[in-house]
Each structure stands twice: as C-alpha cells, then as structure tokens.
Simulated assay, not measured.
Amino acid sequence: MLANKQDKVARPGRPGLSLKGRALKYLAAREHSRVELTRKLAPHAESPEQVDGVLDELEAKGLLSAQRFADSMLHRKAARYGAARIQAELAQHQLPPDIAREATQALRDTEFERAHALWARRYGEIPETPEEKARQMRFLAGRGFSGEVIRRVVRGEGFTQS
C-alpha cells in the first residue's frame, strides 16, 4: 500500500503535471470559474503571470467559460437554494456582471416553484403552530429564498391536499 502512495508523489527528475494539464484535469471534472482555477493553480506556478497566461489560453480556446460555469452552478444548485444564495456564490467567483444578472433573473422567475417543491419534500404540510411555522420559514430562509416567497409557501399557496 505504501508503494502506491509513493508512486503518486512526483519524484525528483520526473516532471509532474504542467499548469495547463492541471487546469484541464480540473475542468474535466466540472466547470470552474477563473477565480477558482487561479486559486488552485497558484501553488504550482512560478508566477501569477504564468497562471494568467494559461487561463487566457484556455479561455481563447473555449475550454474555460464564465457562462458555462454559471449555467453549471445553476443546474447543480437551483433545486436546493434560492436566488439570493446562488447570487452570493456567483459573486464570490467574480463573474462578469451581465452573466451573473442573467443567471439570477432566471432563478427569480422560478423561485416560488423551487421553494414550494423543496418545502413539499421536507414538510409537505401547512404549519399548525407558530413554532412549526418559524421552523419552516428558517429552513427556506437559510437556503436563500426571498421573504415574500417564503411567506407564500408557508401560507400554503400552491398547496393541493389530496
């Protein structure tokens, strides 16, 4: 077992992955933002300019895309989180303002439906006590849904009882 671990460690005289190779390995697993790749590649680079050069090349070839990253994040997180939470995550990745605005607008258009589906999976019943109502509201608020949407969901709008 120990021999396998040693095989994975770069040996002296044997080159490790290049910066471009590392970046491609990360991008093969999932879409990344430029900020994420910069952070991940920086420890392996000789200078920040070297990282920027690799990322510029990947963007020019269409292998690194802010739009694809935003779409990927929406696809992964929209069913579980509200627009405010996802907008905050997109802001951390310093995406161009037009891409972030477009992504969050699409989320706001479906916010009630997504919040209601999440609430129905978790609770499924209109709260009967103030404590239960507060618990349900905190659950949705913690996932970044707007106050108005939370009130509508917890009041039972869109709820059909069989």
Results as ranks from 00 to 15, higher is better:
residue 30 R to P: 00
residue 25 K to P: 00
residue 42 A to S: 10
residue 24 L to V: 09
residue 20 K to Y: 13
residue 20 K to E: 09
residue 14 R to D: 07
residue 39 R to L: 07
residue 19 L to G: 08
residue 24 L to K: 13
residue 39 R to W: 03
residue 25 K to I: 01
residue 31 E to V: 01
residue 36 E to R: 11
residue 34 R to E: 02
residue 40 K to H: 15
residue 28 A to V: 08
residue 16 G to M: 11
residue 33 S to T: 05
residue 37 L to D: 07
residue 27 L to G: 02
residue 22 R to P: 02
residue 21 G to C: 12
residue 14 R to A: 10
residue 14 R to W: 13
residue 18 S to V: 00
residue 36 E to G: 00
residue 15 P to Y: 03
residue 36 E to V: 04
residue 23 A to H: 13
residue 16 G to Q: 13
residue 23 A to V: 08
residue 41 L to V: 14
residue 33 S to H: 04
residue 29 A to W: 11
residue 38 T to A: 09
residue 14 R to H: 14
residue 33 S to G: 06
residue 32 H to C: 05
residue 28 A to K: 12
residue 14 R to F: 14
residue 37 L to G: 03
residue 27 L to E: 00
residue 25 K to V: 03
residue 14 R to L: 10
residue 38 T to K: 14
residue 17 L to S: 11
residue 43 P to E: 01
residue 37 L to M: 12
residue 40 K to T: 14
residue 22 R to D: 00
residue 18 S to N: 01
residue 31 E to L: 03
residue 18 S to R: 10
residue 40 K to Q: 15
residue 21 G to E: 08
residue 28 A to I: 09
residue 18 S to Q: 06
residue 32 H to G: 01
residue 17 L to P: 06
residue 21 G to F: 15
residue 24 L to W: 09
residue 30 R to Q: 03
residue 23 A to E: 12
residue 31 E to A: 01
residue 28 A to P: 00
residue 15 P to A: 04
residue 21 G to M: 14
residue 16 G to Y: 15
residue 20 K to I: 01
residue 36 E to K: 11
residue 15 P to C: 06
residue 14 R to E: 05
residue 22 R to N: 05
residue 40 K to S: 15
residue 37 L to Y: 12
residue 43 P to N: 02
residue 20 K to H: 13
residue 41 L to Y: 13
residue 35 V to E: 04
residue 32 H to M: 02
residue 27 L to K: 14
residue 15 P to G: 04
residue 25 K to C: 10
residue 28 A to F: 06
residue 40 K to L: 15
residue 27 L to H: 09
residue 17 L to Q: 14
residue 19 L to Q: 07
residue 19 L to D: 02
residue 42 A to G: 07
residue 14 R to I: 14
residue 40 K to C: 15
residue 24 L to Q: 12
residue 38 T to Q: 11
residue 40 K to G: 15
residue 21 G to L: 14
residue 26 Y to T: 01
residue 42 A to T: 03
residue 16 G to V: 15
residue 42 A to I: 04
residue 38 T to E: 12
residue 28 A to H: 10
residue 26 Y to N: 04
residue 29 A to C: 05
residue 22 R to A: 04
residue 41 L to T: 11
residue 38 T to D: 10
residue 37 L to W: 09
residue 39 R to Y: 03
residue 27 L to Y: 15
residue 21 G to T: 14
residue 30 R to D: 05
residue 35 V to F: 14
residue 25 K to E: 11
residue 36 E to L: 08
residue 27 L to N: 02
residue 37 L to C: 12
